[in-house]
Each structure stands twice: as structure tokens, then as C-alpha cells.
Amino acid sequence: MSNSNTTEFSNPSTFILLGIPGLQGVHVWISIPFCTMYVITILGNFTILYIVKREPSLHEPMYYFLCMLAITDLVLSTSTLPTMLSIFWFNSREINFSTCLTQMYFVHCFSAIESGIYVAMALDRYVAICHPLRHSTILTNCVVAKIALAVVLRGAVLALPYPILARQWPYCRTNIIPHTHCEHMPVVKLACADISISSYYGLFALISRIGLDVLFITVSYTQILRAIFRLPSKDARLKTFGTCSSHLCAILTFYIPGLFSSLTTRFANNLPLYFHVFIGNLYLLLPPMLNPIIYGVRTQQIRARLLRLFPHKGTEVVSFGSGSQSKSCVKLSGDIVLVPA
């Protein structure tokens, strides 16, 4: 392994991940917030899945998409973070060539799936606000399943050329990847060939995934805002807009770091390498951690169910009725939320 840095080779059996270049001396300290983020991601997303599964009143399109988002976040963070932590904690830098390409595929596949889920959630908000009386007839379980399948298939197909193109290039310079995981551009830049096809496809996939999705979300929310501003009272407008606030926060935490990371990797070559790597890691770790927090705090039904699972001082839960008509009032900070028992 000592000669792997300089010896010429073709199609290496392993790559060497540097971690965060220039910050190797503080890898252990960097691992603390990264590990904390991963623990919060695991606990938060599994909590969302548990609550939606246990609560029949949450078996609606919005929460089905939220469960898809939770599963996607778990896979996306798990596909990269164990590799990072093995570098930070055990200095385990080697990664098999095929494993590297598989990791690359998972990162891009589930990033595309997550983007598609945000589009599906925007569609759900549009139907719920602009066509409330037809919501249940438009977004039936069958339609939701078809949307979910389309989102998954699109992500799988869009990500497939990344490892296929990367595998065909000859790697005869070095096998050292200046990153914490097998990101597309840092890997193909090691090839001793014209990688224009890989670069152009990456840009095409970025436009297809982020550009078109953001455009569709923008159109949806333009229609939503027009419907909200037509409501008669300010309270009604604020209450209706509040149902979209968690979705909008999740969109911002996903697209802004993702777009910034992709553009700086391609065009901002004057920035320090550790900055590119750090931003790329935040893009993969921040949204999966923040999504369950955003939806847990901003969604009344999930917040109320959490309070019933973990009652604390200052929270009062009162049940009344019996059988299928049983209800509970959860009093929190002056608000009363009615949820099924």
C-alpha cells in the first residue's frame, strides 16, 4: 500500500480516501458533531416512521411521503457516514473499487429520490389547498403508490450512468481520493482520460434533478400562494400557510446546500479543498438530521402524538369518549390540539 500513491496502474482494486484534506489532525474532533448528527438522524427518522405507523389518522398522502422521506434520509446518511467515521476514528482509508462505485450510486440515487419526494409533497400541498374537496379522490392510495414508484425509478435511472461511466475510465495516475466518500467528480478527476462525458452528464443530471424539481415546486407554490391570498381573513391565510411551512423549511435545507456544493465543486476551484469536502458532507448529513426535527416541531399531529408518547411537566393530556369515537386533547403552550386516542 505504501507504493499506491505513486505507482502507475490501471483500474485500481482499491481507492484511498483522505478524509478532509488539510484537517487530518482534527479528524477525531470533527467526528463528534458528525456522529451526533447521525444519531439524531437515526432517532428522529425512526420516530417519524413509528408515529405514522401507529397512528391511523396519519395514514394520508402527506405522511406517506414523509415516511418515504424518512427512509430515504436513513439510507442516504448510512451510505456515507460509516465510511467517514471509519476514517476519522480508525484511519481506515481503503475502499474497494466496486464498493466505491456502489456508494457513488447510492448517494446520487437517493439524492434524486429525495428531490422527487419534495416535488410529490408540493403536489400534495397544492391539491390540499387549491382543491380541498377533491383531495381524497385525486390523491388516492393507488395514485400515491404510482407517484412513489415513479420517484424511485427516476432516481435509480438518473444515478445509473454515474458508476457506469466512472468504471470505463482508466485510472493510471493515483488512487487517492481527496474526500470522505466516493463522490462523483473527485473520483472521475483521477482518471487519465477525457472525462467530459462524465462531467456533462453530471451537469445534465443536476439540471434534471434540481432545476426541473425546483421549477415544479415553484409553480406549485405560486398557485398555493394565489389560493391563500384569496382567503377572506388574515387568520385563515396564516393557518393555511402554516400547513406548508415545514415543507418549505425542508426544501430550503436540502436544495441550498446541494446546489451550493455542486456548483462550487465544478466552478469554484480557487476555494480550499477542505471547504469543498466539508460542504459536500453537510449536504448529505444536514437535511436527514433536520427533516424529522422540522416536521416534528412544525406539524401539530406529529407533535401531539410525540407528547402522548413522552408526556412531561406542563403538558396535559385529557381523553374523553369511548371506542372509535375516543379523542384526546393535548394542551401545549396555550394551544389545544385534538387528536384521535
Rank of each mutant, 00 (worst) to 15 (best):
S333G: 07
Y200G: 04
S261E: 08
I51P: 06
R154N: 01
C192G: 04
W89A: 05
I138Q: 00
G296C: 04
A148N: 06
L248M: 13
I217N: 02
P288A: 06
A150D: 05
Y162P: 01
F229C: 12
Y118K: 00
D213S: 15
A112R: 07
P33M: 11
T6Y: 15
I336H: 14
L85C: 10
F241V: 01
S57H: 14
S199F: 12
T243F: 11
S322F: 12
V317A: 09
L81N: 06
T264W: 07
Y221G: 04
G323D: 12
V297G: 01
R298T: 11
N141H: 10
P163A: 00
H27K: 09
R125M: 03
M289C: 14
C172M: 06
G116V: 09
S77E: 04
I30A: 04
C182K: 00
C244Y: 09
I217A: 03
R230I: 13
I217M: 08
Y221S: 03
S199E: 06
G314Y: 12
T80D: 04
P163W: 04
D335E: 12
F229R: 14
S220P: 13
N269L: 13
F216V: 15
F229V: 14
C249P: 04
F46V: 10
F275T: 05
L286G: 00
L81Q: 05
F34G: 03
R173Y: 08
G242F: 11
C182Q: 01
L149P: 01
H27E: 12
G321V: 10
V151F: 08
A341E: 12
M37I: 13
V337Y: 12
S198F: 03
L203F: 09
V143S: 08
T218E: 06
S86K: 08
E316K: 10
V75I: 15
Y50M: 09
I217G: 00
L23N: 12
R303N: 05
S86M: 09
V143L: 12
C244H: 06
Y64Q: 08
I294R: 00
V157W: 05
L158F: 12
T222R: 05
A304K: 03
L259N: 02
F241T: 07
I113G: 01
M121Q: 05
F254N: 00
G211D: 03
N96Q: 11
Y50K: 09
Y105P: 06
N5E: 15
T243A: 08
Q325Y: 15
N11V: 13
S136R: 08
P186F: 05
L18W: 15
V277E: 00
Y118M: 08
G44K: 05
S333H: 11
Y162R: 00
I48F: 14
M62F: 15
V318S: 08
F254C: 02
I210N: 06
A148Y: 03
